[in-house]
Each structure stands twice: as C-alpha cells, then as structure tokens.
Design a protein around this nucleic acid. Sequence first.
DNA 1: GCTCATTTGTTCGTATGTATC
DNA 2: TGATACATACGAACAAATGAG
Lengths: 245, 245
Amino acid sequence: MARNRLLGDPTPVYFKLQTEIQKKIENSQWAPGQRILAERTLAENYKVSIGTVKKALLNLVQEGYLYRIQGKGTFVAGTTLRPESLRYYRFLRNFTDDEADLKIKLLKIKRIKGRQPHNRYLKIRSHQNLYELKRLFFYKQTPIVYSISYLPQKMFKNLHEFPIHLFEKVTLYEALEKKYGVPTLYNQQLFGAALTDNLTAKLLQIENGKALLFIEMLSFTYKDKPYEYRESYCVTDERKVFNEI
Amino acid sequence: MARNRLLGDPTPVYFKLQTEIQKKIENSQWAPGQRILAERTLAENYKVSIGTVKKALLNLVQEGYLYRIQGKGTFVAGTTLRPESLRYYRFLRNFTDDEADLKIKLLKIKRIKGRQPHNRYLKIRSHQNLYELKRLFFYKQTPIVYSISYLPQKMFKNLHEFPIHLFEKVTLYEALEKKYGVPTLYNQQLFGAALTDNLTAKLLQIENGKALLFIEMLSFTYKDKPYEYRESYCVTDERKVFNEI
DNA sequence: GCTCATTTGTTCGTATGTATC
DNA sequence: TGATACATACGAACAAATGAG
C-alpha cells in the first residue's frame, strides 16, 4: 500500500534499502564473502515486505555487490570483473585460439614521490606519494609484457613489506582485494602503439625500433575511486591482447 | 500456486515466456522500435500472473532485448537505441580528455571471394563470398584510422548498391541494423602493434616505419553470430583508443 | 490546462517449490 | 529429517507517466 511513501518522498523504498546495503559494503562494514541477513530478517528489521527486500537485493546482485545461493544465503561479493578478463592480460594468437598462460616476475617495488599525470589520474593531490611496481610477464620463458604500476601509498600502507611471491603467484587484483579489501569493479584502458626504446628492448629481449602495443590502464574500486594506474608495453608479434565488450 | 509446473517440468514459467519473446525478436517477427503487447494482455494471453510477465520482461530489458517507458509501453530494442555502449572506437588524448569527433570517408566497397581466416572468424564456409569495405576516419582533416571490414554477402545482399553517404553519415552499425535488421550485441577485439607499410603510410599521411595500433574486431548479432570482421590501423601519437570494462 | 484511459512502476502479502546443511 | 534460506508464482491495490481528447 506504499505506506512508506505517503509523506511526499518519491524515492522508492526498495531503492533506499538498496542504497543502505550498498554503503555498508562500500565502507567495509560488510566484507567480501560475508553472509548478510536473510530476506525475512531484513524485511522484519526494515518493516517492508519480502518482495521489496528481494528487489533491493537482486538489484545489488546485478550491480555486482552481492551474490545469492539458494538454500545458503546472500553474500557480499568481491571483484566483479569476470575472472577471465581479470587474468592480466589475455593473450591470443587469433580469435579462435586458446588463452596463453603467463608467469609474472616482480622486478622492483619502491616508494616514489607523487608525479603527474599519475596523481591526477588517481585523483590524489600532487604531494601524495606512490608505490611503483615494475613487473615482467612471461609466456614460456619469453617476456612479452613489461608493466609499471602506480598505487597511492596512503591507500596501501606497507605494500613493500609483503613477500614478493604475493605479486608473482596471484594477480595484483586478488592480492589487493585480500590484503586491503579493495575489490576491482571496472577499469579503463587507452591503447596505443610505441617504438621500442633501449630499456624496453633489453627487458623484452627484442631489437630496438620494433612496434610495441602500449596500454595505459586505470582500475577503479567503490565510489568510482581509481586505485591503480598502469603502463604496459606488449610484444604482439605472436599473440595479441584480447578484449570483449 | 505454480499450476504450470505440476507436471515435473522444472523450467520456470517466466523463463519460457522470456524465451518465447526473445525468439520473436531474434527472428525479426518483432522489429526494433516496435511496441509489444501490454503486461496485462500478455498475462491474459499466456494465462499467467502479471508478476510473472513482469519478471520475464525485466529480464529481457536487462539483456538488452527490450526497453520500457512508464505510461507508454514495452519496446523492442536495437543497437541504435543504446548509443554509448557500442560506439566506434573512442579517441582520447588521456583519461580526463573528451572524446574526439571523427568523420568517416568510404574509400571503396567491393565484392570479393571468401578468404581465410576471415571466413573462419565469420563462421561461414570458405567458398562464401564477402563484401570488403575500406574506410578512413578523420579527426579535423587528419586521417587517424584506416579500416577494412569484411561482411558475408549472403547476409547483406546488395550492400554495394546503397548510396555511399550511408556509410559516411552514420556508423556501420546503425546502417546494418536499419537496412538488414542486424543489431550489434557485442564484439571482440584483438589489440596489437604494427609498423607502417607503404600503403598505410600513404593513406594515413605519415612517414614509413612508425608504430601503429592494429585492431582486429569481430562483431556479433543474435545467437552469437559474427557478421563483421574488421582490421583497423590507428595513428595513436596524439589520441589513444579508449575502452572500459 | 484538465480529464481520462492506458501502461508501467512500486508495494504489499501469501503460498509453495527447492537447495543446503 | 527438519530447519533455514532463496526462488517462483499468484494477485491486489495504488502511484506515476504518457498521450489523446
């Protein structure tokens, strides 16, 4: 009977509930993996019908904040990028090829002063410091990607003290979500081409003057907050970088 | 009361209805833009409750088959009706830049014999013939993309007889949807880097030996049917190709 | 500018099916 | 087996937007 809307507030009840839950997830009051209250319980607590609770929850499932398992419950989700696209990056010979399995090697992690345009992309002030991660991605002993990541020090305290294998065994995404509760919700990329310089030629073991795929990437977590800016140089002679939209 | 499910068929009623409507859209019985029957009418026709019809329709909205306007009705969607998501490449100087507006020039359209790997990507037999479209994309008089598209002749009969401005004034997507009822649902891309050869250097008005962004693209319509394979060469000195996932 | 029929949007409540442990 | 939790389905009432008259 829409009892809750008689006072002239046009915001639907389900949307208010949805927003409340979303906020609890965004500010980490409810952590990824955690089971939340049951439909009925929520309905009783908020004094709304089960159907209204269902609508709020299903919307949040659709937006990637929650997932539900019949008979078990409703749970807070983590990184919402499809696991395939998360595996960084996906290298294929052609459209019908299988994905190549890459190994990661951490070259260096260090703390650096803030710089531009990095800090601007990350939406932090220019005096805020950064972590710089340099990594190589290998396909069967052959290096094919050289990437440099920049992360706000303030957001990832003591990142440099973690064991190195953390950045080699799992993706950076998984590591950051597990250690800092920062799930990846979406990311933006800029694709370009560049010629090899001395450094990249040496690291990627190719001759100078070859064409490289150059990717700039910004990864976002809750509240459209960018938390990583990454530059990658890719050898695409054999395999190319796959994307689906 | 689930009357329709007493006979042991585990398929939900809403899902059957959803599938029926989806098929009508896929085989063009219901065309993009067309209004479909009202909720109540569908409920009466199929002898199910309004809630069940609603669920089926909302699922199809979410999958992009339909859109709904309160007070007007439920309509069949198409590519044209979701402009932002499936645009041509978007060219930006950096992450905070605005999108550059590109002009298109059709260089040539001709019928060619089928070839590999094109026909394999398009999932058609190797003897089936193709259309080949060569186009240049300009940003303020400066050419920045050279693209070659391949389309199955069988699927797009008489494509070469359409006026040229059709391929210059609107995107290829819109043209194909309007003329052949083939909306674009998603596409796949492979990104690589290449060095300029004589042809591309001349067309793109740059010197030989520069690095170009090379994009292979496959566009899909209903039933995961690929209908266009495209190769693009992009000058990314000033602007880069944007993507968001 | 107003009214009215149509259509979708929101909310309620109930009953039953089905998966999990 | 039973308790719990989500999924499906029904139907009613009212709100809000649209467009025609």
